[in-house]
Amino acid sequence: MKTNEAVKNINTNSFTKMDKDYARFAVEVIRRSGVNIHRCWHCKACAGGCSFSKDMDYLPNQVIRLVQIGMKEEVLKSSAIWICVGCQTCSTQCPQSIDMAAVMDSLRQTAIKEGVKVAEPHILNFHKEVMNSIQRHGRTHKLEIMMRYKLSKKDWFADLDVGLKMLLKRKLDLMPSRVGHQAEIRRLFKLSRENNHD
């Protein structure tokens, strides 16, 4: 598969000891994301196309650069990896076919796994609430996600107007729409837990 090929093509024998420490992070990102980030030549097509790059501390190609030169902490603590919504605009525009969205996914997951201080804790909390909702019902229950998310943020009044409008238009169902075979959903979450403990 492409992951293994990408890792195999990097000849670590030619690295000095210091190089190896730096290169290890890049190899890890390549292995986890399945994307050879060394193909990036920094044309910045990704940064230009991104709707949110101006809200990021590093541009998408800068995130790649930091990975290439092994600056792990800077990457994992960056806001860029959390502001990215994975819309794939950059992956589509990249002349080198680098799946930038997959790189961002793997960086977020590494940040969670290594317990680093996340730059955008609210975004992470929101993702967690969505996953909790899927775990409980098999589907997302928007009202519950928003209530729990607000609880974690301790911020009840921001956006109250939007929430009320949506309730009035009956856009937020009070009861969740649920999957019948809950055991099958539990099986999926068990698989994920087992793999993450390996």
Binding site: R108, T140, V179, L188, S192
Partner: peptide, 21 residues
């Protein structure tokens, strides 16, 4: 009895669930 595909969150925080949901 379909289930959620993982929405914009599964791929962000859990690779396995993004693949398997």
């Amino acid at each position: 009895d379909w289930n959620c595909c993982g929405s914009s969150s599964a791929h962000s925080v859990d690779h396995d669930l993004a693949d398997w949901l």
